[in-house]
Simulated assay, not measured.
Amino acid sequence: MTLGMAWLRTVGNIRELVIASDSRLSGGQHWDANPKIMLLPRTDAVLSFAGNTWDAYPLMLQAYNSIKMHLPASSRAMDLEDLKGHLVRVFNHSRKFISGLPQGQKIPDDPEAIFVLSGFSWKNKAFKVWTLHYDRSIQGFTFRPAKEWGGQAGGTSKLIAYAGDNEPITAAKERLISLLRDRGKLNTGSFNMEPFEVLRDLIREGRHPTIGGSVQLVKIYEHANAVPVGVYWPSKGAGIISVLGRPLMNYERTPWGVIDPDAPDRAYPAHGLDNHVIDE
């Protein structure tokens, strides 16, 4: 499945929403070069997923197409808050066309996928994160908002959402708390790139077979633009540049910045970056 995170990063007066995930699809084999974060056909939001690709990919593509064909959604006249409701309706409407059920089965199987909608709301002048999930009690998709951590000192906030398997999510939460405690930030300050560091370490250690591949990363800025950021993987010295989960080929260039996974606070400028040669 997946380990994905979306968190609010604050450095000085600058805030940005960071969305990160591993890049592994599993199903009898491991395929470690797959996008789990989709940039939508509007600049202020992304949709990420965890779960079964049989359920996730069709709904993500329908979400993308529904935004592209609906001018208020694609132009951002439809605020992120309203877009969330639109996507829930698209998901539920799409599932009405499932047929050919096994004999005696009256409704389709519950979808084994959840989605995270992350973006910047121009109405609220704030970053927002929602988990779009299936609720069996209403036989449809609904949503829940990410909430800030409680018990924080005045003037600080920590907002984060997780998506994925229970075991790696539990491990990620425990490690994030431990890391913040070691740095004296458990009850003060805001997130920087600590969640990225936790995800990076869990992938590198390889203890959770459902997560793997490179870290894929997207940032959303307060000027309402989402940008995929490259990651040197598995390290800056030995790795190649990976963008949205896929290692780039030797003739490809990324027009965006690239980060060193061991020093993720700083993005290297994209100008002049060439990827390492991949042996064919």
Rank of each mutant, 00 (worst) to 15 (best):
E197D: 15
N192Y: 09
D201C: 00
L87I: 08
I114Q: 07
L180A: 02
A146N: 02
V90I: 15
I98M: 08
L159S: 13
L117I: 01
E81V: 13
T210M: 14
S178H: 02
G119H: 00
L101E: 04
K173H: 05
Q105M: 15
F141C: 02
R181E: 12
D79P: 01
V90G: 01
E174V: 04
E167P: 03
L180N: 04
G140Q: 12
Q139I: 07
A163K: 01
Q216F: 03
W130P: 08
V198G: 11
I211S: 03
L199S: 11
I138C: 11
L101Y: 09
T156A: 13
P145Q: 05
H93Y: 08
S121R: 04
N187P: 00
D135I: 04
D165N: 10
R204K: 07
A153F: 14
D135K: 06
P102I: 03
S157T: 15
F143L: 11
L80F: 09
L199R: 06
K106R: 08
K96I: 05
E194I: 15
H208D: 07
R204L: 00
L179I: 14
I114C: 02
I107L: 14
Q105F: 06
F115V: 01
D182N: 11
I203Y: 01
S157A: 14
A126M: 02
P168E: 02
R136D: 12
K106W: 01
G212M: 02
G155T: 09
R136N: 14
R200I: 00
K123S: 10
N92M: 09
F115N: 03
L159N: 08
E148Y: 13
K147E: 15
N92G: 07
L176P: 05
D165V: 12
E112L: 13
S178G: 08
F115S: 03
